[in-house]
Design a protein around this nucleic acid. Sequence first.
DNA 1: ATATTATTGATAATAAAAATCAATATCATT
DNA 2: AATGATATTGATTTTTATTATCAATAATAT
Lengths: 145, 145
Amino acid sequence: MKKEKSEFKEIFIKYIEDKGMRHTKQRELIVDSFFSAGRHITSEELFNIVKKKNPEIGYATVQRNLNLLCESGLAEEIKIGKQKTRYEQKYGSKHHDHLICVKCGRLIEVNDEKIEKLQDKLARANNFIPIKHKLEIYGICGNCK
Amino acid sequence: MKKEKSEFKEIFIKYIEDKGMRHTKQRELIVDSFFSAGRHITSEELFNIVKKKNPEIGYATVQRNLNLLCESGLAEEIKIGKQKTRYEQKYGSKHHDHLICVKCGRLIEVNDEKIEKLQDKLARANNFIPIKHKLEIYGICGNCK
DNA sequence: ATATTATTGATAATAAAAATCAATATCATT
DNA sequence: AATGATATTGATTTTTATTATCAATAATAT
Ligand SMILES: [Mn+2]
Ligand SMILES: [Mn+2]
Ligand SMILES: [Zn+2]
Ligand SMILES: [Zn+2]
């Protein structure tokens, strides 16, 4: 069974090479681990995962490469309240917004095409060209009520 | 011409007294300055304004009282990207969301009743009780395009 | 007035993320 | 395969925003 190179990795490698950067074992491990981890991971959580496979790796390297993933468009920062920044996978998942439980912190991913359209309309009505948006609805999730 | 005590101040004083806290000249100045300042001010900006009226005042006092304003419901934190926290006046202005220019940083306040309704519906469809939400649309404002 | 204690202002502590830097690894060139 | 240029790493320090600490002071009840 041949190991296929995942597309996210190809995209990342291309981004790296185009900028004259280099391919390293650490990068590979970090990128792989990021995409097989949970959907809203912190740098610390990813560091702990990565450390198990390669205990030599440093925290700074994980942070740096998460930043690179963001720059390349493969990841995106999510900041909720006073929590540490979380990183969302932007490959293999379409745009969505979040319902955030104020009791347990659960993130529920949602999408509403009507809302998306109205947001665009609202922006344009204000002579504003929308690029991206962030919608977070805070409340009580099903488990917590 | 008698100076009327503004309602926001009454609300704040009531909040303070109910918690067994005390009324001080610093609080009064900070609250007054906050409500006559711009709509999305940082603690640093407010500190600089307040310092002109009372150069004795400390930064920590401004921060603390902004936090109190938030607790009382009269102010709300807005965090945009990596910027310092800004504080929004929540008295005398109804709920709104923001268009945020990625070029000049301008904040445009908007509201769309249809979007608000659909957000509620979306939350409930996910067995989620919405409490509040935050919608930020990033893009290019009229001045910048 | 006095006693109690919340508040202040100066400063230190905290915490997340970015910057620094010498040692090392990568990679194009030979 | 060895070389040289330089990007990356890991450890550490720095930065920056916010919160915590604490002795002195001010506000309030008695
Ligand atoms: Mn998500
Ligand atoms: Mn606003
Ligand atoms: Zn919950
Ligand atoms: Zn603009």
